[in-house]
């Protein structure tokens, strides 16, 4: 009975350890992914900078539409 309990405990500990390891891996994966994502966004912004209309304030103010459907 006691051995069973201990065995159960050990099993639970091992599970916990595995979960922690997986979480750490997931954490660094996530960090890596976020870094890559942010680099990706930065390069996209550089591309957009090249084509954005000059003088954004005037440009946006000048976009006036009549209503439609």
């Amino acid at each position: 009975m006691a051995a069973d309990e201990r065995g159960g405990q050990q099993h639970a500990n091992r599970d916990k350890q595995e979960v922690e390891e997986t979480e750490t891996e997931a954490g660094s994966d996530l960090k890596e992914r976020q870094e890559k994502l942010s680099e990706d966004v930065d390069s996209m912004l550089d591309e957009i900078d090249e084509v954005l209309e000059a003088n954004s304030e005037d440009f946006v103010r000048g976009f006036v539409q009549k209503g439609g459907q």
């Binding site: 966004v41 930065d42 912004l45 957009i48 954005l52 209309e53 946006v60």
Partner: peptide, 26 residues
């Protein structure tokens, strides 16, 4: 949204920025 959040972070822009409105339009 991703582009706009990128601009906000990189250039410290608020939502009332004409540059963000321009991104939306363009």
């Amino acid at each position: 949204y991703e582009i706009l959040l990128g601009y906000r972070k990189r250039d410290g822009l608020d939502w009332d920025s004409s540059r963000l409105q321009l991104v939306d339009l363009q």
